[in-house]
Simulated assay, not measured.
Amino acid sequence: MSWVQPVQIPADVDQEDRIVGSFTARQVAIVGGTGALLYVAYLVVGDRVPLVVCAVVAAPIAVLGILLAIGRRDGIPLDRYLLAAIRHRRSPKFLVSTLGNVPPAPVWMAVRPGPLPAPLRLPARGVAGDGLIDLGPDGVAAIAEVSTVSFALRTPDEQDALVAVFGRWLNSLSGPAQILVRAERMDLTGTITNLHENAGLLPHPALTSAAHEHAAFLAGISARHDLLRRQVLLVIREPAVGNNGRESAAARALRRLDEASRLLSACGLTVRLLDCPATSALLASCFDPTAPPIHDGEFAAPGETVTRGERW
């Protein structure tokens, strides 16, 4: 009889492998590189500089190398955090939407000297009429809004059934999918206006009074609090393959959304594909979350000349 020793698999499958002791390859490279740099510097100047001076100069560098190797900030290693800070410092801060490079200002225009704005290069080329986001050579992305269910109020058997259905959907995935949970501001102005306008049409004075009181209650809540609602989005992305890459990618994305709708309907969830105005409004709100919500009809169609813009 042969015995097989079980192998423990860590819960965090993305955890880096330990190469020397508890140090990863990245940490070994940082500590080893720091030590090699100090050793080479000592070989170069060790004969002409006293040993105490070399130790005083090398100590802060060694401590900095150790901190970069083992230190973390907000869950991010310090070396990557430092590289991200340097990249942010060197990256342009003024970006403009353009198809090419930003041309310089004409000579007759008085402008302050300084660097030119850099072009803003977004992965999305635009939103098609069917609501799909055109990612250019990367294919298309489809965004659907998904309803929610109360998991905590279900019985244990119902919770197990919900988890099983969700697991079946995850196992059926044949491509990239993203579940995005975002909070957006709620505007109750329309609801309050409708309550006041329709209160007079109610058949009983008590109902009319209750409608006005409810409208006043909603107005008070809007004045005292920042009202938010939770929105769950399902993003399906498909790459463009072949000559008619965009059409085939769009068909695959819509088919995958249809499959998700059928499977998740067993959980009581509804999956609704966002149309072109809704997708455009969603992308605009992601760029400016503090702006008021954009309603249908406020976007100009592709190629349409904008003659008036109150939002600007």
Rank of each mutant, 00 (worst) to 15 (best):
P106Q: 07
I30F: 00
T155N: 08
A152K: 12
P123S: 07
P117V: 10
S150F: 11
V111D: 05
V63W: 11
I70F: 07
F166Y: 10
V96S: 06
G65Q: 03
F166A: 15
V57Q: 03
K93N: 08
F151Q: 04
N101P: 14
R87L: 01
V63D: 05
M109K: 10
L83C: 01
S91M: 08
T34L: 01
A118S: 15
A152Q: 11
A141W: 03
D138L: 12
R48L: 12
I30N: 05
T34H: 00
A142C: 14
V45I: 14
A105D: 07
V31G: 05
Y81Q: 15
I30T: 09
D157N: 13
V57W: 01
Y39S: 15
V96E: 06
G100H: 13
I66G: 03
V56A: 15
L162C: 05
D79H: 12
L51G: 13
P123A: 08
V140Q: 05
L64K: 02
R89G: 13
D74T: 04
V96A: 06
G71A: 11
G139A: 04
L68K: 04
S97K: 09
K93A: 12
V165T: 15
A141I: 07
D130H: 03
L68R: 03
S91V: 01
L38G: 05
L83I: 05
F166I: 09
D134P: 00
G129W: 03
L82H: 02
G71R: 05
Y39M: 13
A84P: 00
R154G: 01
F94L: 12
F166H: 11
Y39I: 10
T24E: 02
L78I: 06
P92Q: 11
P50V: 10
D138R: 13
L51P: 00
L37T: 13
K93D: 09
G114R: 07
Q27F: 07
A152I: 14
P77H: 09
A62K: 05
L122M: 13
R73S: 07
L162I: 14
L78E: 04
V165A: 14
A84G: 11
Y81K: 11
A141D: 02
G136M: 06
L64Q: 02
G65T: 04
Y39D: 10
D160L: 15
P123E: 02
P92K: 11
V28Q: 03
R72K: 15
L67I: 07
L99V: 13
A144C: 14
S91W: 02
A118K: 04
L95Y: 07
G136W: 02
F94S: 11
D138V: 04
F94G: 00
F151I: 14
D157G: 15
D157S: 14
Y81N: 11
A118D: 08
P156H: 03
G100P: 02
L68P: 05
G75P: 02
V49Q: 08
D130W: 00
I66K: 03
L51M: 14
V31N: 06
G33Y: 02
L82N: 05
V107S: 14
V146L: 12
S91F: 07
G46W: 05
G33I: 07
A62M: 11
A144V: 06
G114E: 06
L120E: 13
G65D: 06
D47N: 14
L132P: 04
R48T: 15
G65M: 01
L120V: 08
V165K: 03
V140T: 06
V44A: 13
I143C: 08
V40N: 01
V45K: 01
P106F: 01
L116P: 00
L67K: 09
V52M: 10
A144P: 01
A142S: 12
P113L: 13
